[in-house]
């Protein structure tokens, strides 16, 4: 076999390998979705969404878990986004390039890979015990905010770094201050990538169970949380709890709750994609 033929063969083999790999992921996701929809769709109605938990599967609803998830989502966003974006901008635009900065950068990237239960232990110690917040929504959201801060910081840094230096120079040369340049040039250009990073980070936070269990979020909360200081549960904990029950009815409830959680994440992502689209439309590339 001559070389050209061999290369073409390798080329083709790799192509099919890549197609197979893509299909593998898609097929698995498809099977999962079909299975979940098949099990849980029929159980979803208005009373499922508006009912409190109960020991009877047929009367049980996800009201507390869903409101808990919405609370956690909002609080975590409010806490983590400003801090994460500001820290990313500081490190990229203001921080001096030094050995210290390098060590810091490596550590932040590493933090993004620390198992979430470790953050749970940290949150339990700092927020629940030292700051005496108890097993509250605020303590849980602070813990999740810590968990996703590294992801937001790294995404912001990369997005800011990708802004052409020539644009910043042009802004400075017209007499703009650093802040004006960041606010009027750097952020509009990089916001798309920053928002993408935030979506990924928040999606992860919404799906977390372990750190919230560690700080003491309960599976059975018979009331709807009204303030950030209330005890709470979230959808993943509710799902985990139902799946571990022996009754068939609870398994179906779990499947239904999974559908609601997926829908929630999809809707949030959709809103974020829309925001990104709107901000990018103002950038006239």
């Amino acid at each position: 076999m001559n070389n050209a033929l061999k290369n073409r063969l390798i080329d083709r083999v790799f192509k099919y390998f890549a197609i197979l790999s893509t299909l593998f992921g898609l097929v698995m996701l498809f099977i999962f979705l079909i299975d979940i929809l098949n099990q849980g769709l029929s159980r979803i109605d208005w009373s499922f969404i508006t009912s409190l938990p109960s020991r009877f599967p047929g009367k049980s609803g996800i009201l507390t878990a869903l409101t808990g998830t919405i609370w956690v989502f909002l609080l975590t966003t409010i806490i983590s986004v400003p801090i994460g974006v500001a820290a990313g901008i500081y490190l990229e635009e203001y921080g001096k390039k030094s050995r210290m900065a390098n060590i810091l950068e490596i550590n932040i990237s590493n933090l993004a890979g620390v198992p979430s239960i470790i953050y749970g232990i940290l949150g339990l110690e700092i927020f629940v015990r030292i700051m005496d917040l108890g097993a509250s929504l605020l303590a849980g959201s602070l813990t999740l905010a810590l968990l996703i801060l590294p992801i937001i910081i790294v995404a912001t840094r990369e997005a800011v770094r990708a802004v052409p230096k020539t644009i910043k120079e042009a802004s400075y040369a017209l007499g703009a201050t650093k802040w004006q340049t960041i606010w009027r040039q750097v952020l509009p250009v990089s916001s798309g990538n920053i928002i993408t990073g935030i979506i990924l980070a928040l999606s992860r936070a919404i799906g977390e169970t372990a750190p919230l269990i560690v700080i003491g979020a309960l599976a059975y909360v018979p009331f709807v949380a009204r303030t950030p200081m209330d005890e709470f549960t979230v959808l993943p904990i509710q799902i985990f709890n139902w799946i571990s029950r022996p009754q068939k009815g609870f398994i179906i409830n779990a499947a239904s709750a999974i559908i609601i959680l997926l829908a929630f994440v999809f809707i949030m992502n959709g809103i974020a994609v829309y925001i990104r689209y709107r901000t990018q439309k103002k950038i006239k590339w």
């Binding site: 020539t166 400075y172 040369a173 017209l174 007499g175 201050t177 250009v189």
Partner: peptide, 18 residues
Amino acid sequence: EELRKTVGMVFQKPNPFP
């Protein structure tokens, strides 16, 4: 910043803002 309002600059490659 005040100085740069009195001294304008044009760069090597055209660099309009997006």
